[in-house]
Nucleic acid binder design. Sequence first.
DNA 1: GCTTGACCTTCCCATAGTGGGAAGGTTTAT
DNA 2: ATAAACCTTCCCACTATGGGAAGGTCAAGC
Lengths: 141, 141
Amino acid sequence: MSGLLTISEAAAGSGVSAKMIRYYEDVGLFRPEGRSAGGYRLFNDKDVHALRFIRRARDLGFSLDEIRELLALWRDERRSSAEVKALALRHVADLDQRIRELQEMVTTLRHLARHCHGDDRPDCPILADLAEEARQPKRTA
Amino acid sequence: MSGLLTISEAAAGSGVSAKMIRYYEDVGLFRPEGRSAGGYRLFNDKDVHALRFIRRARDLGFSLDEIRELLALWRDERRSSAEVKALALRHVADLDQRIRELQEMVTTLRHLARHCHGDDRPDCPILADLAEEARQPKRTA
DNA sequence: GCTTGACCTTCCCATAGTGGGAAGGTTTAT
DNA sequence: ATAAACCTTCCCACTATGGGAAGGTCAAGC
């Protein structure tokens, strides 16, 4: 026992499930220290650190592809902070876009719901909107 | 030709791809009018109308399960608008939750990026945050 | 009526990220 | 040595969508 951890210990120490640790290895995000004679994965502190990094990046909404880039930058002593910043801001732009789309849905739905009686009667502007016959596909002419 | 449409015509008329029309039928969202002698799906106006309904509901972010419920309510003459409204507001709450999560990510990332030089130097608070050693898992004690 | 090209069918694969579970091997403590 | 706890790989599922292959159908022209 030279300070090496099993997968469940690495999971507990990183907040990443054992299932996901194996998956991240599969897709090449990182490679654990080694294996025991019997084939068990063995993790050192650096591995757990990388897993926490991945976990945190996932929490911030980065995709695994983006995390691959972030890890490469992290490991590259000669990176420029400009690269990292650009990556982060690109991601922020994506998030903003997604937020705007969701907000538009919310706005529409709240508007429709506000005009719905919400009682025993069947008439409902929400269904009426969904079923609307005369929805022209954005007339450009 | 008694006003029945082929799948590509139904697709063009509803904004739903032929691929998705088949899938929606598979998962039981709707059932097209019938089939030709040779097995081609044939759609009537009601079918296309239902497809537009589904399309619109997807645009508003409803899952296919939710759409299944919406379609059932739509078809039920004795529905209560209260049910529809509740379904819609539940969905709005989900969207709001998702929006809040995304906004939190954006806030954190913007804050980190603001403090990143974004030049040739490698030092970067974004990576520093991701790599942070001392991230305690929300101390409850 | 036959050919041909456009269209349709079903079936499988892939995506992204996560989890469930089975069958079987390893480790460790008793 | 045995048993319990743990690990391995492999397959399946989810959501919603698209790509593509192999093969059958339809309609138009001749």
